[in-house]
Simulated assay, not measured.
Amino acid sequence: MLQILTGFGFLSGMSYPFRLLGVFKSHSRLLSYIIVPILLNFVIAIFLDVGLFLFGWELTQVLTDTIIQRLDLFLVNLPSWLGGLDYLIVVLGFLLRIIFGILLLVLTGFLLVQFGVILGAPWYGKLSEELEKITTGNVQVIEVGFMGDIWRAILFEIKKLVLIISLGFLLFFLNVLPGFGTLLSPMGGMILTGTILCLDFFDAPLERRRLKFREKLGIIWKSLPASAGFSLVCLFLIAIPFVNLLTIPFCVGGGTLFVCDRILQKGLLPSENQSFIPQ
């Protein structure tokens, strides 16, 4: 019954970023690991808001106006008794601006995560280690050396980029198809964005165990629907301007708590990594 009420883990997955508040309350020393990342997020956000957001907002206005103009030209050729559709066009223009604005906020927050997680990696990594130690009693690491760490980090970002580009093109062409294509494309975009966010926020504890990129993706799917709930709430938290400067560290920490509870303790690691599950 509890599984049904929580959406078979979906609602529980949504709770993990907020669970960090309880950890900070009992281990206030961990707050020192999010101060520098928050400052970095602030600097990054200034450049993104000034550059991407302002430019993107102007672009969305042009795109919306173009759509409305084409619809107006279409209505000119319709019978006069359909003149009431003009009001529908006004409403549609208003809705399009809201939709494009939300998508722009999500994109800006998504890029903030990508840059913020990379630049704040030393502090986030230490926070993740401390959270794992508190949650499981120890921290497991497979050592590969400094250069190995750098090389794996570069490969991780490249593989994420390949995933985004390849599926992004597929979703773009899917959007061209009338009917289902137009509906499935934004849904696919949300799933892709949520998957990338899970990769970013789950990465610290998984990378310490040196999992392959495909194995990390597999873990996200194995932990559904909880991972879907986690990615959805993170998507919401990173899309809120200014608030996301504070919430991104909570998503990173929440990702570690999620991995400890729902992956390490439940034995969802690949078989060769099972020895790194806390007993």
Rank of each mutant, 00 (worst) to 15 (best):
His27Trp: 06
Leu155Asp: 06
Ala239Thr: 03
Pro37Ala: 02
Leu161Phe: 15
Leu54Ser: 15
Tyr16Ala: 09
Leu163Arg: 02
Ile68Gln: 07
Ser28Phe: 13
Gln61Ile: 02
Phe55Cys: 12
Ile34Val: 15
Leu163Glu: 00
Leu73Asp: 14
Met190Ala: 15
Gly181Asp: 10
Phe74Thr: 13
Gly83Asp: 08
Cys260Asp: 15
Met1Gly: 14
Gly84Gln: 01
Leu82Ala: 14
Lys133Trp: 10
Gly255Ala: 06
Ile240Asn: 02
Gly13Glu: 07
Ile118Pro: 00
Leu161Ala: 12
Met147Val: 15
Leu107Asn: 00
Pro278Met: 01
Leu73Val: 10
Asn41Ile: 08
Val259Asn: 02
Thr64Lys: 12
Cys260His: 02
Ile220Ser: 01
Ser271Lys: 12
Leu119Gly: 02
Ile150Met: 09
Ser185Tyr: 05
Ile240Thr: 02
Ser12Val: 12
Pro122Ile: 07
Thr6Asp: 13
Ser223Asn: 05
Leu183Pro: 02
Leu20Tyr: 08
Ala228Gln: 08
Gln140Phe: 13
Lys25Gly: 15
Ile67Lys: 06
Met147Lys: 10
Leu107His: 04
Leu199Lys: 05
Leu111Tyr: 14
Gly22Pro: 05
Phe53Arg: 12
Gly83Phe: 06
Tyr33Glu: 13
Ile44Phe: 11
Leu39Phe: 14
Leu54Cys: 08
Asn244Thr: 04
Gly179Cys: 10
Thr256Trp: 06
Phe156Arg: 10
Leu199Gln: 07
Met187Asn: 04
Phe10Thr: 08
Leu103His: 04
Phe202His: 09
Phe55Val: 12
Met187Val: 15
Asp49Asn: 15
Val252Trp: 00
Asn244Lys: 01
Leu48His: 08
Ile158Glu: 00
Leu82Asn: 07
Ala204Tyr: 13
Gly168Phe: 09
